[in-house]
Structures are given as C-alpha cells and as structure tokens.
C-alpha cells in the first residue's frame, strides 16, 4: 500500500483550505460599500455622454481602456501565431470528406444566417450587448462548423488560411491605425471623440466615434484568429485520428 500520494493530497487539501481561509479573511476585512465609487461610478454616470456609446461595457472596453483591449486581442494574435507555428511543421493535404448529406445541407442553409448574426453583433456592439470579441467568436464558430461538417479542405477553399491571416493582421493594423489617428490629432493614442471622431446621435448605428470601427477591427482579429487556430488543429486531427483507416467498423 502506497500512502505517500494520499498524504500528499491531504496536505494539499489542508494547504488549499488554509489559503481559502486567508483569502476570505482578506475579503471579509474590507469595509462594506454602500454605493459604487471611484472610476466605476464615473463610467456609469458619464460613459454615454463622454463616448457616445449606449453600451457602457463597450465604452469601457473600446474607449476608456481601449489599450487593454489592444493588448487582449494581441494575446489572441500571439496565440494564433504560436499555434500555427507549432502545427505548421507537417503539411497535411488530406481532409475528411465531412459528414452526411443531411448535415451538409442543413448547415449549408444555416451558415449565412450565422454569418449575418455575427456581423450584427459586431456592428451593433456600441448600442446593444455584444461587440467585436463576441461577434468574432460567432464568426469563428461558422468556420468551425464548416470544418467539421464539410471537411477542412472545403473550409479552406472558402476561407483560405491566407485570407484569415491577412484579415487578422488587417484587423490588428486597423486597430493600431485608429489609435494613431488620435496620436496624430494630438489627443493621445486611441482617443475617441476628443480626436474629432463624430459622436453621432446616441443609439444610432453611426455613433460613438471610433468604437464601431474598433469593434470591427477586433471582430476581424478574433474571428480570423480563432478559426485559424481551429483549422490548424483539425488539420492535424484529420490524418492522425482518421477513423476510416483500420477503424473499428467491422
């Protein structure tokens, strides 16, 4: 009987419990807050006036803290770069032929709606909940579906990896370019209304200055990036895990 793993786990459990207690003490010691204070109050009160966006989250993400968003989307860019670097060693040309006719036709009917949905979420990011990250993810879902249902070669013939790459880089460059406009106007990197972008009428599609543009840029970046990640991974799966080769069918 080996007792060491058991002891190890028990000790780890006690450690974690102790840490939990310590961290909870940290939370419990904070004085209770009656109202929102600090920057949060400022955002809630004045976001729509200062940025022209009705979606406060969008205003924080793409205006007050747009630099963080640049960073976050760059994380995705880095991950995409890395995953395609790690999976790029072997060239796979064969792809699975996809699922059955029913699935293919069904997804074929659905896909345009999905793309439309993604576009709407991106474009209306400053008015309603949503935005570049969410819309981009949905767009990536479309390509994932196409990959699974039709096979990766079909997907790559519709959305070639090069297009994805250029879309991704284009989105990133667009983001930086919009930021540099603010820099050129002398009001600071990624500045919105103060750099002279039109505020528009609040709640309309063309409003909130740079926020829709940044949404589009992030949508391009995220959508293309995530689908590129999935593409490079399924390319690997297609051959390494091909169930038709000596698979368990009879």
């Amino acid at each position: 009987m080996n007792i060491r793993p058991f002891l190890f786990r028990i000790t780890a459990l006690f450690l974690c419990a102790f840490l939990g207690v310590m961290l909870f003490r940290g939370i419990a010691a904070m004085p209770p807050k009656e109202s929102v204070t600090g920057p949060a109050a400022h955002y809630l009160e004045r976001a729509s006036r200062e940025t022209g966006a009705r979606n406060v989250v969008g205003a924080i993400l793409f205006d007050y803290r747009a630099f963080d968003t640049l960073g976050e989307s760059t994380v995705i860019f880095t991950a995409v770069c890395g995953i395609s670097m790690l999976f790029s060693r072997r060239k796979f040309h064969r792809s699975s032929s996809g699922l059955s006719f029913i699935a293919k036709r069904g997804i074929g009917i659905m896909a345009p709606f999905l793309i439309m949905y993604a576009t709407v979420i991106i474009l209306f990011g400053h008015i309603s909940p949503g935005g570049g990250f969410q819309g981009g993810t949905i767009f990536a879902t479309v390509t994932v579906l196409l990959c699974v249902v039709f096979g990766s070669s079909f997907e790559s013939s519709y959305f070639p990896p090069k297009t994805k790459e250029s879309l991704e880089s284009g989105g990133a460059l667009l983001f930086c370019g919009i930021g540099l406009v603010g820099l050129a106007a002398g009001t600071g990197f990624l500045s919105n209304l103060s750099a002279g972008f039109p505020a528009g009428r609040e709640g309309s599609l063309l409003s909130a200055g740079t926020i829709p543009l940044l949404n589009i840029a992030v949508g391009m970046k995220v959508g293309a990036g995530l689908s590129a990640i999935f593409y490079s991974m399924i390319k690997m799966l297609d051959t390494t895990n091909d169930y038709r080769e000596g698979g368990p069918i009879r």
């Binding site: 600090g38 920057p39 400022h42 955002y43 205006d63 007050y64 803290r65 747009a66 630099f67 963080d68 603010g182 009001t187 600071g188 990197f189 990624l190 500045s191 919105n192 103060s194 750099a195």
Partner: peptide, 13 residues
C-alpha cells in the same frame, strides 16, 4: 506621462 485616449489617470490608462 502619456494619457491614453486623453482620459485622466483615474479613469483611463
């Protein structure tokens, strides 16, 4: 110091 987006240090970066 450069204020990004022209926001004050309290609310911006």
């Amino acid at each position: 110091v450069s204020l990004l987006g022209g926001w004050a240090p309290e609310i911006g970066i």
